[in-house]
Design a protein around this nucleic acid. Structure first.
Lengths: 119, 119, 119, 119
DNA sequence: GTGGTCTAGACCACT
DNA sequence: GTGGTCTAGACCACC
């Protein structure tokens, strides 16, 4: 699992977002055990506390739950994750258009530039 | 002038970016006097210190210059601003594709979603 | 303000409970600024991070809110705090009766012992 | 035997307390054989290691003793158990009054609330 | 080993 | 100086 983190913004919500995406897109299945806090921290190159905090935040949102001494698990019901993911993607796109507008590029022009973007 | 700032990332570079854009797109003309630090801070809802820092940063990049007791002015030559602006727009688009990938959406799919985006 | 903390159980929720009580009983008023995270940590003899975490928890419950660079404030509307407080007191009493029962003392006997307790 | 454990504090001392109470109140008689470590762990829903530790702790206090290969037994002399039990009950009541004070309820008011408590 | 909690200390943006 | 975030490292109870 590749973690792509922008060190110039809070890491914790980025972890939440990417976890949420992995659940909503089926890369993590309901009831599946996640990597341990420490292992995931190593993978992502961040501090275990940051991962712990992210997991707790996701728990509050009904996406994960923990079993003492055993690990963290994806919720049985991933409807919450799907919902979060949907708004997350929408927000990302909206913010992109907004940012382009701050650069003097209106949405229509933005769409054009994206269309002509070389992958 | 609409200032759109993301409070979750450093304000100063955001101000720089948007000033740069305004110059490169002709909303601010060469030799034009900028609003005062204090007024611009009020407009943008940020601390005057932050605006001051942004102006000084832009001066270092040859985009602005200050006149003692008279305020800040756009440089005669806005080539630097144009150059900065170009890479800024590119970077913004790249970062958008990258962020979408962290959400499990590949560039092709991202292009699709943008195409179908309702303005 | 006297902080009475039992070091043998998680400190953070204890801080939450006592803050909640102070608000519900009027020792802290709506809109009032709290002591700074660092000062309160000194007072209570705990780590600033623990205080920060407690404040954030109370924020989630609608009891406090923070103003960047200015401090933490009691919410405008303290209904949430009152509600939390009420259940908190009830739970404390229930748990006391339960604990006495684990010691082989039924509730009626517990009431008796409390009645004869020398203050 | 009902085991009522607060998962938020160390389990081992809680087991000790409740065992002690059962002995002092005659639910377990001198020389009586206790349930096996494993069975008691199942009953209480805790780890066998924790039960083992509790038994060893009670042995140190002269309340239990082990017989190799035969299990654990209540001591002949339960004076120690009685003494522990007495202070335990007192401490429980004191801690209750103390906790109520942290919630802004003084001992007199606490007595009142207990008096009016519906069993 | 795993999660849960806390301490200590750091840097940043902002008032 | 204040909140916001992160790192580093520790101890505990539990599996």
């Amino acid at each position: 699992m590749g973690w792509l983190l922008d060190k110039n913004r809070p890491i914790c919500p980025q972890l939440c977002e990417q976890l949420c995406a992995q659940i909503a897109t089926g890369k993590l299945l309901p009831q599946q055990r996640l990597k341990s806090v420490r292992d995931l921290a190593l993978d992502a190159g961040v501090n275990p506390n940051t991962v712990q905090k992210a997991f707790e935040e996701m728990e509050r949102q009904g996406v994960l739950h923990s079993v003492r001494g055993a690990g963290w698990y994806v919720s049985d019901d991933i409807a919450a994750a799907r919902e979060l993911y949907k708004t997350l993607v929408e927000r990302t796109m909206q913010e992109f258009f907004q940012k382009m507008e701050t650069l003097g590029i209106d949405p229509a022009e933005t769409k054009n530039r994206i269309k002509e973007w070389n992958l």
